[in-house]
Structure formats: structure tokens, C-alpha cells
Design a protein around this nucleic acid. Sequence first.
RNA 1: GCAGCGAUGGCGGAGUGGUCUAACGCGCCGGUCUGGAAAGCCGGUCUCUUCACGGAGGCACGAGUUCGAAUCUCGUUCGCUGCGCCA
Length: 430
Amino acid sequence: MLDIHFVREHVEGVRENLSRRQYAPYLELFDQVAGEDIAYRKALQEVEGLRAKRNQLTQQVAKVKDNPMEKQKLVQESRSVGEQIILNEKIQKELKEKIHEKLMKLPNLLAEDVPFGKDDTQNVQVKTWGEITEKNFEVLTHAQVAKNVDGAEFDRAVKISGTGFFALKGPLVLLDLALQRYALDMLMRDGFIPYTPPVLMNRAAYEGVTDLSDFGNQLYKIENEDLHLIATSEHPLTAQYMNETLPSSQLPIQLAGLSPCFRREVGKHGLDERGFFRVHQFNKIEQIVICSPEESPAFHTRMVSNTEKLFQGLGIPYRVVNVCTGDLGIVAAKKYDIEGWSPREKKYFELASLSNCTTYQAVRLNIKVSSPDGSKRYAHTLNATAIATARMLRAILENYQTPDGGFDVPPVLQPYMYGLTHIAPVTLVK
RNA sequence: GCAGCGAUGGCGGAGUGGUCUAACGCGCCGGUCUGGAAAGCCGGUCUCUUCACGGAGGCACGAGUUCGAAUCUCGUUCGCUGCGCCA
């Protein structure tokens, strides 16, 4: 959410920034907010004036308690002021709610170098890493390799939970855990503290960290409870600081979230019956940073570098793209995606998403930073995928695939897998 | 799930319908003092609004009673203790 005080003081600048998204409804919303804010402050002053008047009257009532005539008169007057207050309060509250509603729908201000674009096809590639080499055999799908090594159950998972669910077993469970340990070990060396949050969150906390449309499209809700399954550990890790003022001496907060993630993916096609790519549940290690405003750009760069190092260690060719306006969403001021190479499809696919949300979540959640001199500002929040294990499993099963239909274990993961170097197909599976 | 108790500023804690002020203590910031520091003393330390003077609000959250609510009533949430259930 945009800070109304900031908006007030920078009406033209904010409007110009919003216009860079080239989406007229945002400007209309913004102009309404700006107008309603002026009306709101006027209404507020009227209400406060009336309340001041009533305060004076009620204090006089206390003084003339022993004079029934005088008292009666003052009570009468005070009562009529009270009625006016109720009317004016209603107007003032309605304006306040209207403004809040609209502010919740307006997107974050864009960082300077966010490119304009319609959708994810117009993201701008800023870097590639790794050598793309042709395999001298036909590359199987990751789901086929998973079956070959008896590392997953697809049909049975669908039987009990529906399409978009999968179960890991055997070597892929070990590989999934190895990826988690590998990512955690690296992040801990960079000062991130491992953190496993609750996977259920109430609505008030959730509204602080996500786009409102996610409630319909993305989040699972528990029936008859004010609880939602988290779509990423970013959400609880960030929201847990809501309504807190953090002393600058306690910053930055760096957490390495480890949790399962749950996504409904309503309206999106291609949910996997056989695979790990677009699914309802997966494990993810996430980098979270809460810091002072001036620190966030440097942290963003550092978090991207961390994820790159993880991918480089795994030996997965990738590219980094600067996400354009049409694919950015409303929360981030700037976002990079990292896409890994698929030797089967011969194209890049999304593996990680790394965002600087500046004050957007902090305003909604009311998270502030206090300086030693007592001044307070909104904090900046950042989140970045380290490894989403399901998608990384696909990357490994394709890039490390061997002609026998199995796969090699990336060397950096071998210490986490009892030194295993190769996972061979099992003849028992169909 | 049931019962009892509870929720007040960064922290501890007073206040149970009206004295202009949420007392007092701790912590923190600034000043004074000092060669420097500590102690002491003075001032500041929730939010909104106003160019400013000032004004309004704020005692878990939401309604209500009243001329007037931290204080009374109802609902909700959360916490503590005990019982029940339980990996």
C-alpha cells in the first residue's frame, strides 16, 4: 500500500510513476484518492471541531451539577452537538474507508529501471550463465525419469488429492532434502537464520503481504476458520512483524524460510498430472530481508547473487530477467526472475523470483524502523527464492539425465546423499 | 472443547463514570554539570490533524448505554491456569 502521507506530499511524482504502467484505471483510482483525501481532511476537521465543542459542554455539566436548571440546559445542548457528531463521523469514516480501499488496490511505485511490457514475454534478459550443450540422446520428461528411478507417485497422489499433486519417494525424497540442506547451508553462511513458520495464517495478516485477488485465485482457505494455507514462507515471515517498530540496531533481519507452499492456481492451465512444475504443493527455501530503506537496493542485489551462486553450484544454466510492468504484480517495486534451462524443451523456465517490495508491505503491515534519535520510518521488505525444490528437481532430472534413463547427482549435493553419484532406473517400475 | 482469571505507553504498573493533563517508576533521546564520565537536575519520548497557535483521538478489537467511558453492558480475539483430548 502507498503511504497516504507520501502521496499527499508527492502527488505529481506518484501520478507520473503510476502512469508508467500505462494502465488507465490506476490513474483514475489515484485521482479519486487524491480528491477524497482532501475531502476527508476537511470532514475530519469538522468532526474534531464539534467534539471540541462537546468536550467544553460536558466539562461545564460537571461544574454545575448542583444547579438543575443550568445543567438541564447544557445537557440538552450537548446532546444536539452529539447528534451532529454522529452524522459527520459517518461521512468522515466513509471517506476514510474509500481511500483505504483504493490504496489497497493501487500498485507499488516502480523502481527507475523497471521496463514497460505487456506480459512475461517482454521481460528483459540481463544476464545468462552456463553453457548450453546438446545431449546425444533424446531427453525424457522429468516425470518419466522420476518414474524410472521409482522416485515419485503421480497417479496415486492424484487419486487421493486430485490433479496438481504429486508424492515423492525414495531417491527423490533424499534429493529434495539435499536441496533444502544445500540452500540453507549457503544462506546461513551469508547471515540468514533458518526459519520454519506456521503454514496457516489469518486474513488480517495475509492482507498485509499479498494482492487481494490472491484470496480468490491462489490461497486455500480452511473451512469455518479464519485461516489460509501459505503460498510461500515469505508471507508468514514478513507478516509476523506486523504492528512492530523495530530499532535500527536490530536490523537488518535476514531469515531463510523453509516451508511447504500451497497454491490453488485457479484459472491457470497445465497443472501437472505427471510432474513437479506447476503443482499445488511444493517445498521452498526463501530469503527474507527486512531493512532500512537505504539498504534495500544493495540487499536485493545480494539476494540475487545468492540464488545465482546456488544455481551455479548446481551447474544449472540460467538467465536473469528484469521483470517488466505487465508481469510485476502490485507488491514489488522491482523484480528479477531467474530461469533455468530445459534441455528437453530447449527453452528457459521460471525457477526463482526475487523482489524488492520497498515500503509496500511495510505500510500495510505497519512495520517501522526507529532511529536512535526517535524518528520512525517505514521499513523495506524483500523476498527472494533460494530454491523451490520441485522445480529444481525438474531442472536436475533434465540437465543431469543419463542415457540409461536415470540421472547423475550434482556433485554439490552428493555429500547430502551419502555420496551417491548416480541414480539408476529401477526395473521394477512399469 | 469446558471452567476460572486476565489484556493499560518500549517495559513495569496505578487508575472502576466528570478535579485541565493515563499517576509513578524504569529505559531511551536532548540539555545542564564535568578535564571526561557517573549521579543529580531540567525538558522530551503513542497516533491523526493544522503553515502555525491549537485541536481531536488513543487503555486488545468491535458495538452499545451516557451530556460525558480506560472505568458500565454485550459480542469477538488473544493469553495464562486447571480439566478433557492428543503426535
